[in-house]
């Protein structure tokens, strides 16, 4: 009797032992080659568009910004970007209501020289890492409603209101044949992606300039060539239409505002 029970128990014990020992063997061997081997090609010189990456650490730094300290710091921005975040010069961007991530990224890119601007690079170098998060928090809070007492360039009437059709079409539908996604799917209000600023309260002249810079390669700080590959496909007329339409507060109807 004891003999029979020993015979039947032995394989079971071996089975359990093997199962327990193998518990870590399979996942460990899997973890070593989890991605297919990379073919050996010599790589071209590394070009990094921006040092900013949307990692958890970056998001923590940005979200820890103090808007009150940002308000105090913003006095040095008021001269160009307006006391309420709306610039009086149409070539300077409005900062009111800009989300924290895109504000912070541009300041960091000015600081690291990834985005070229003789004025802003000097100013960004004078800011501490904490300052840009504070400023980002402050400008994100500013209201975008129109203020008749303030001298703001936005909105400006469209030069040619008939171009609004082209612009609205691109903003709402994009152009699938050319692979141009709708502007509103990243820049709002339909949906946003990280680092894409809102454009509905932005100055048209500034937007036209940036679209040109993206398409001719003088601005290259967009992560993964996203904006460059779109801007390069836009015709000159479409660029004008888009920037005028956004600069008029989305459409010719905004002229009366």
């Amino acid at each position: 009797m004891s003999h029979a029970s020993r015979v039947s128990r032995a394989p079971t014990a071996v089975f359990w032992l093997a199962t327990l020992l193998g518990l870590f063997a399979i996942p460990l061997s899997l973890a070593k080659n989890h991605s297919p081997a990379q073919p050996a090609n010599s790589t071209p010189p590394l070009r990094i568009p921006s040092d900013v990456a949307w990692t958890q650490e970056t998001l923590t730094i940005i979200s820890s910004g103090d808007s009150f300290r940002g308000l105090l710091l913003a006095r040095r921005c008021n001269h160009c970007h307006g006391e309420e975040g709306f610039s009086s010069v149409p070539a300077y961007p409005n900062l009111a209501g800009l989300d924290r991530l895109s504000f912070w990224k541009q300041v960091e890119d000015f600081r690291s020289g990834k985005r070229i601007s003789p004025i802003m690079q000097t100013i960004a170098e004078g800011l501490a890492a904490r300052d840009s998060a504070d400023l980002a928090a402050y400008y994100a809070l500013l209201p975008t409603a129109s203020d008749p007492l303030e001298n703001r360039a936005f909105p400006q009437p469209m030069q040619d209101p008939s171009r609004a059709t082209i612009a609205i079409r691109l903003i709402v539908f994009g152009d699938g044949q050319r692979g141009i996604p709708p502007c509103q799917s990243c820049h709002g209000p339909v949906s946003y992606v990280k680092g894409a600023p809102r454009l509905d309260v932005q100055n048209g002249t500034y937007l036209a300039e940036q679209l040109d810079h993206f398409s001719n390669g003088s601005r290259t700080n967009d992560i993964n060539v996203r904006m460059r590959s779109i801007a390069i496909q836009l015709t000159a007329e479409e660029k004008t239409a888009l920037s005028e339409c956004y600069g008029a507060g989305l459409g010719p109807g905004a002229n009366s505002r």
């Binding site: 539908f173 994009g174 152009d175 699938g176 044949q177 996604p181 709708p182 799917s185 339909v190 949906s191």
Partner: peptide, 8 residues
């Protein structure tokens, strides 16, 4: 996402 249909 929102721009899926124009992603080409």
């Amino acid at each position: 996402g929102a721009g899926h249909y124009a992603m080409r």
